[in-house]
Amino acid sequence: MTLSMQVARKRLALLWFVGAGICFAVLLFISFFARKVDLVGLWDWFLPAMVPNLSLIIGVLVYTQRHQEQADIQVDCFLYRLTLGLSLLYIFLLLLPLLFFPLTGKTLPELLDISRLWLAAVQGLATGVMGAFFVRQDEK
């Protein structure tokens, strides 16, 4: 079973931007209303985790839009579902410390430090499979 590359890209892009938006909103809320928080550390944790992938998505989507003469490629559904699953997992692991730290008894900076352990593993996998969809494909 196959799926159109354009459709797959759009769905994945939507997932990433919605997930990043939720994280961004939570961080903004904390930045404006929280007391005595290390804002630099907080944003320093979030931005490198999201911005590179979002930049890649935006870049490929813009390029594809400009070169609409390209034939629409079909991609394997299995690969699409794998990419979707890993992306969902990655975004969930990003949101986990931000939303659940009040329930753990650990401070937010402690939890953000610990989260780098599992984010590093999943980020590599998610970025890797994203490369199957968000890469420039020139005509030969």
């Binding site: 809320f29 929280a34 007391r35 005595k36 928080v37 009040p102 329930l103 008894g105 401070t107």
Partner: peptide, 25 residues
């Protein structure tokens, strides 16, 4: 120096928001 976590049962939105914003210090 431990900070008590917000309890899940019963769950209080007010306590959760206070902890989210660091007002439980």
């Amino acid at each position: 120096t431990q900070i008590d976590p917000v309890s899940l049962i019963p769950f209080s939105i007010d306590a959760y928001l206070r902890a989210l914003l660091g007002k439980n210090g």
